[in-house]
């Protein structure tokens, strides 16, 4: 009995530093945000906030733009998560076995991840310039395609943002997949090759199934990231044209920081958190054998 208590205490001691930081700087704030979502205030009127009960949530339920922002975020997720996962996977498979220049290629694909998002966004708003001198359109023209109004056409604006985030993020996913590939024992490949399996068969019958935990991890973290997308949209499109690229966090920022409705923004935060938790939970149910979580 005494040993169990001691074991518990030691474990808590090990957890204490990290969880103290979490509690002070994340858990208390998030609980606080739940309370703040029941109030009406702006940043400057923080200390004289009015209690309004569930009014922010009732308003949110009727807010067309908020609904729009959820739809946009989901649409963006459908681009971002598969794009990053598939490209990351393909290039991990290509760059797994040693060949000439492999390390350089790995580095080259990862580099964009190193550049701050703010800078990435301004560089790409130039590449996506609608004029025929923007690099993206020059490539289209040289392929005899019609130039596209990337950031101004409501059909393409979110896709353009998706491309930017795939550019900056798929190399990172590639590294995670590469790591996952290290866990697959070589003997499996050798045995399959002895059985006369082709490269394709090996990839689809052995590699991919064994990569499932990694894939699951990549998808989950990408999902969380994509629901939190903000900076590139803020800089590249400003949420426009119309509301066609306004995502949840962009709307949260607009309401809280530029339209002085921090209470309302807090309600958005709470809803967003619930959505992400729900998604992670559903994902966990789907991929339950893959014991990553």
């Amino acid at each position: 009995m005494k040993r169990r208590v001691k074991e518990n205490l030691i474990a808590y001691a090990f957890c204490a530093p990290a969880y103290t930081i979490f509690t002070i700087f994340l858990f208390i704030p998030i609980v606080w945000v739940v309370f703040l979502s029941l109030k009406d205030f702006s940043i400057v009127t923080f200390y004289s906030a009015k209690f309004v009960g569930f009014r922010n949530y009732l308003r949110l339920a009727k807010d067309q733009i908020f609904l729009r922002s959820i739809v946009n975020t989901i649409y963006f997720t459908l681009l971002y998560v598969p794009g990053n996962t598939i490209l990351g996977l393909i290039f991990a498979l290509l760059l797994n076995k040693p060949f000439k220049g492999r390390d350089f290629f790995r580095l080259a694909l990862f580099i964009p991840n190193v550049i701050p998002m703010v800078v990435v966004s301004i560089i790409w708003s130039l590449i996506f310039s609608s004029s025929t001198t923007g690099i993206a359109n020059r490539i289209l023209i040289s392929l005899h395609l019609k130039p596209i109004e990337w950031l101004s056409d409501y059909r393409y604006a979110l896709i353009a943002v998706g491309i930017v985030l795939i550019w900056s993020g798929f190399g990172y996913r590639m590294l995670i997949f590469l790591a996952g590939l290290q866990n697959i024992p070589d003997e499996l490949y050798e045995a399959a090759a002895l059985d006369g399996a082709t490269k394709w068969q090996i990839t689809f019958k052995i590699t991919l199934p064994l990569l499932r935990p990694t894939t699951f991890f990549v998808i989950t973290t990408s999902l969380i990231n994509s629901f939190q997308v903000f900076t590139p949209i803020y800089i590249m499109t400003g949420g426009g044209p119309g509301y066609s690229t306004t995502t949840i966090v962009n709307y949260l920022y607009t309401k809280g920081f530029s339209e002085f409705q921090m209470g309302y923004a807090s309600a958005i935060s709470v809803v967003l958190l619930v959505i992400i938790l729900a998604l992670t939970f559903v994902q966990r149910k789907i991929g339950r054998e893959d014991i990553i979580f």
């Binding site: 858990f27 998030i30 945000v33 703040l36 966090v249 958005i268 935060s269 967003l272």
Partner: peptide, 20 residues
């Protein structure tokens, strides 16, 4: 709880975190 910290959008907690 550790995993849930990944899910908190920074802008959501920025103000309380700032005050603390």
């Amino acid at each position: 709880l550790a995993l849930s910290t990944l899910m908190i959008p920074f802008y959501a907690v920025a103000i309380p975190m700032y005050i603390i």
